[in-house]
Design a protein around this nucleic acid. Structure first.
Lengths: 173, 173
DNA sequence: GGCCTGACTATGCCGCGAGCAAGTCACTTA
DNA sequence: TAAGTGACTTGCTCGCGGCATAGTCAGGCC
């Protein structure tokens, strides 16, 4: 089987359902194109409103909405700053929560580079600035990169909780 | 600065624009909630139409549309199979292109586990089935995990190409 | 006092993702 | 031959992401 290995009662895929799936929750909070691209810009060092709109190539309305949401969610911090001879303005600075999405964004880039650029190849390369080595996003344990087939999925909940969740899910229909 | 380091002419963020951004392209192809969750199910071993709809918790219409798109994009292969006493049916099997999205999906899971589950914590854990060690998604070079601040971004195109792309982009307005 | 600029907000529109409900179609089984 | 089943399709509505255009608002500059 070309898939992960499911531990214990997880193996019976009809006996449980992920009602609290982190992937679904994550997609609900940052699953839009504009959110990902705003994060990309932030990783490149962008902090100001109109730099985001211009460099991402979205309208001001969309940038304002997205920055408001991402700030409310705690991925950005709205911080006042003042340049001499300018009035106080606000910049959007990445928090740890925002910075922690880096693997997601770079994994998307890595996949797009490989499959969606045709002959052209990746427009931008990434290297470790300290060692000069190329940088990749990897699914790995301490010792090595782990292929899908050797990935074990274990529950952090009991079979009983899973059954209860199933019943609730079907009751909600 | 709390950001990646931009190489050479990339440092002037107003002198270039990513018209071919892999992240944007990737979001355009697999940037929906349902696509990510269908991939999650595929990683858990699901292959059949109604298993996808039931386990992801989406309608048949959405499942059909998404599987059609993902198959057209080459993330799934539609393969006939026949169980004894059943007519021929089709199953959706991950291709390499589909499997290569694993880092994206697991990076989303990792982030959601950390920030969106509250007290509860991650519903599912991941381990290396061969060594038993915990599994994480990392941005890394050969020797080590690379933090954002030590990530160097280099162009795979010339400054002249960047300028031309900029002119085209502004001309299109 | 009027102009400019950066940072938004407001309004109107379109298209798509998603849900619900019902229908279709090719078989298999009783 | 009729009923059942798995795998879809069709038709509808809703809501949201995104674009475009226009307006607002605070403060510095001349």
């Amino acid at each position: 089987m070309d898939a992960a290995r499911l531990d214990g009662f997880l193996a019976d895929r009809d006996a449980w359902q992920t009602t609290q799936c982190s992937i679904a929750k994550a997609m609900d909070t940052v699953g839009t194109r504009s959110a990902m691209l705003i994060l990309r810009e932030a990783y490149y060092g962008t902090r100001r409103f109109d730099d985001f709109t211009r460099r991402v190539g979205i309208t001001e309305a969309v940038a304002a909405a997205r920055l408001r949401e991402l700030t409310a969610e705690g991925l950005f911090e709205r911080r006042p700053y003042k340049e001499p001879g300018q009035r106080t303005r606000y910049e959007y600075v990445l928090t740890e929560k925002g910075r922690d999405l880096l693997p997601v964004v770079l994994a998307l880039k890595q996949w797009g580079d490989k499959y969606l650029q045709g002959e052209r190849g990746a427009p931008l390369g990434l290297t470790d600035d300290t060692t000069g080595d190329p940088v990749r996003v990897e699914v790995r344990s301490a010792a090595r990169e782990v292929p899908l087939e050797e990935l074990r999925v274990t529950p952090n909940f009991t079979e009983e909780q899973a059954r209860r969740a199933m019943r609730n899910a079907s009751a909600n229909r």
